[in-house]
């Protein structure tokens, strides 16, 4: 597969290993701009690893990653990353609006304080995720769903072309999940590219217009209708057929 220069996210021969065992192996992916992509696969399939290696949070064993045809360092300002919410200490002394403002620290000079304009955009990002009334709360008072929304708002103020979200639906309630899905779809409608690591198969067909099925290696990648087949799922989830069949059953049920 050769990438197109306009692809938002282009991975070639990417391999990452932990202590000699490959976490992802020889991954080739080209994601065009403007799609909402779900990265799906079983536990330990390397979904998070793919994301973290792409933005150089963990070292690659081999391979290249390009964003909008450019290396990561040059595309930094166009990428917004939403880490797993369990990755930070939520007892850190700071308020919700402060966390959101952190999204602007990269653009802000090192020693400039956030001005009114920055505060305004942080505020509207909080409004977008429905958290404006929590702006001045300390973050240790937030529920899991509110933590996730705060992280999302921090990425929204970055006003990026590409959003990378690591398990945004992990352990959040249904209301928050719907709110996050809506924001992802709004971003896509605005022409942004959104890549979401997602661990379970329920509703993926309704959430994402592109899918990357991953299990150490790429099983399939492309528009959802083409990729979401029983055969591909079987290949992705291996012999664990019950998982696949359960999810097919859930899939057949009408989505609320």
């Amino acid at each position: 597969m050769t990438g197109n220069a306009s692809d938002a996210f282009c991975v070639e021969d990417l391999t990452v290993a932990y202590r000699g065992v490959p976490a992802i192996w020889d991954v080739d992916v080209n994601i065009p701009e403007g799609v909402l992509l779900g990265v799906v696969g079983p536990n330990g399939a390397g979904k998070t690893t793919l994301l973290r290696a792409a933005i150089q949070l963990i070292p690659k064993a081999a391979g290249t990653v390009r964003f909008f045809g450019r290396p990561y360092e040059e595309a930094l300002s166009q990428i917004a990353y939403v880490p797993q919410r369990g990755s930070v200490d939520w007892d850190f002394p700071t308020t919700v609006i402060d966390v959101v403002l952190m999204g602007l620290y990269g653009r802000l000079g090192w020693w400039r304080r956030p001005s009114d304009r920055e505060r305004k955009s942080a505020w509207s990002a909080l409004e977008q995720v429905g958290m404006q009334e929590y702006a001045d709360r300390p973050i240790n008072q937030l529920s899991g769903g509110q933590q996730q929304r705060t992280f999302l708002a921090r990425a929204l103020v970055q006003d990026a072309r590409l959003y990378l979200m690591d398990e945004p639906f992990a352990a959040v309630d249904a209301v928050t999940e719907r709110a996050i899905v809506q924001i992802m779809q709004e971003l896509r409608a605005a022409g942004r590219t959104v890549i979401v690591v997602h661990h379970d198969l329920q509703a993926v067909r309704h959430y994402f217009d592109w899918l990357l099925l991953l299990n150490i290696e790429v099983v399939a990648c492309g528009p959802t209708e083409a990729v979401f087949t029983e055969e591909n799922l079987r290949k992705t989830y291996g012999g664990n057929l019950s998982t696949v069949e359960d999810s097919r059953r859930v899939e057949r049920a009408p989505f609320p």
Binding site: Q56, T94, M102, R107, W110, R154
Partner: peptide
């Protein structure tokens, strides 16, 4: 400390994220 207050705060709170915004 005062000059680097904001970057230091970001690194202390969430250093992977701080790396992705170019700090």
């Amino acid at each position: 400390l005062l000059l680097l207050w904001h970057p230091l705060k970001a690194v202390t709170f969430d250093s992977p994220f701080a790396a992705t915004i170019g700090l």
